[in-house]
Amino acid sequence: MTVVLDSRALNRATLARQHLLARGDASVPEAVARLCGLQAQEPQEPFIGLWSRLAGFEPGRLDDALTDRTVVRTHLMRRTVHLVTADDALAWRARHDAMLRQRVLGTYRRELAGVDLDEVAAAGRAVMADGRPRTMSELVRAVEDRWPGPPRRVLGELLVAALVPMVQLPPRGLWRRTAGVHNLPLATWLARDVDPLPAGDGDPVGQRLVRRYLAAHGPAAGADLRAWCGLAGLPAAVKAVREELVVFRDARGRELLDLPDAPRPDPDTPAPVRFLPAFDNAVLGYHDRSRIIDAAHLGLSVAGHRVVLVDGRVSATWTVRGHHLRISPLRPLTAGEEEAVRAEAGDLAAFLDQDIAHVRLDTAD
C-alpha cells in the first residue's frame, strides 16, 4: 500500500532538503549544488538565502565563489537568472536550450516572425569571439543592422537569455555592489565548452536532473519538477529512473516520487524561524506549493515579496526600509512565535549590517 504524506510531512522533508531545519556547514559551491541553484534575478537575494541555510555564513564566501568562477550567474531554469555551480551550468545548459528559445519565442513570436534564430546566434557568437565582455545594448548594437525589424530589447533578450550561453560577470552579484550587467559566453569565462547533449537514445542529462531535483525538493510530482525547471520533455527521464525511486501519495492522491535514502523527518520535528529572500526556490520550486504556503498567499512569492517561515510555513513578509526591518504577519502569531521571529530578525539585521536600528513586528490583519 502506498504511504500517504500529509502537508506537514512534505513540509519537513522540504525544509530538510533545503537546509532550513538546521543550518549546514557546507561550502558555498557545495550548498549551491545541493540546492540545485538559487534564483538570482535580484542580485543581493542569494546572500540572504545562504545566510538562512549556512552556519556562520559571510558574504565574502559567495563573492569568492563568483570571482574564482566556481559559481556563476546565468539564465537557466524557467529562463530565469540562477546562481549555479560552474559544473552544473556547463552540464545543464544544452538540456535547457530548446526551452530557453521557446520561452523567448512564446513571448515575442510576432516580433521575431521570419527571424532565423540560428543566424542570430552565430552573429552573436562572432561578436563575442574577441573575449570582451559586453552589455546587452552593446551586443545588440553590433548585430542590429542585420535584423532591423525586432525591437532592440527583444533582440537583446534573445541573444543573452536564450541563444548564446552567457554568464553575468562580477561585480554583478557581489555583496553590496551595484553594477550593470556585462555578459560573456559561459565557455569563455570557464575556459570549457558547454557539455553537448549525448547522442543516441535516452536522456542521461534529464535523468540526472530528476535525481538532483528530488534530492533538493522531494518528494515531488512530475508537475513540480516541470514547474521548477521549465522543461516539458522529462517524462522519459522520470520513467528511466523510476525503478530507483520510492512512491508516495499526497493528501489529494497525487503520486509523489523520491530518492529512497533522502531525508523525510518526522512531521513533528520543530522548525525554526527562517527569513527567506525574494523568489526563493523553497517556495517557487513546486507546482503545488501547499506544503509551504497557503493558497491565499501564493501571489506573494511570485511578486517577489520576502517571506518569513514560522513553523515551516510562510507566515509573514519582511522588508528593510532605511533603518527599519519591518515584519508583517499573515496570521496571528503566538507570544512564543513572536519572540522567535524577533530573535531571528535581530540576527538578520546584524548580518545585513545596514545600521538597522529598529525591528518592527506589525499586528496581523
Rank of each mutant, 00 (worst) to 15 (best):
L10A: 01
N11L: 10
G24H: 03
A26R: 13
V28R: 06
A33N: 12
C36M: 15
L38I: 14
Q44C: 04
E45H: 07
P46E: 02
F47A: 08
F47L: 08
F47W: 10
G49L: 09
A55L: 06
R61E: 06
R61M: 04
L66F: 00
D88F: 03
L90N: 01
R93C: 02
A98M: 03
R101I: 00
A113G: 13
L117I: 08
V120Q: 03
M128Y: 13
G131Y: 03
V154G: 05
A161F: 03
P170C: 00
P170D: 00
H182I: 00
Q207T: 15
Q207H: 09
L214M: 05
G222D: 10
A227S: 11
C229S: 14
A232L: 15
P235G: 14
A240W: 12
L256N: 04
P260W: 07
R264D: 00
P267C: 03
V273Y: 05
D280M: 01
R289E: 07
A295L: 07
A296N: 07
G299F: 08
S301L: 13
V308Q: 02
V308G: 00
V310P: 01
A316Q: 04
S328K: 15
R331N: 02
E339Y: 10
A340Q: 12
E344D: 06
D353H: 09
T363Q: 10
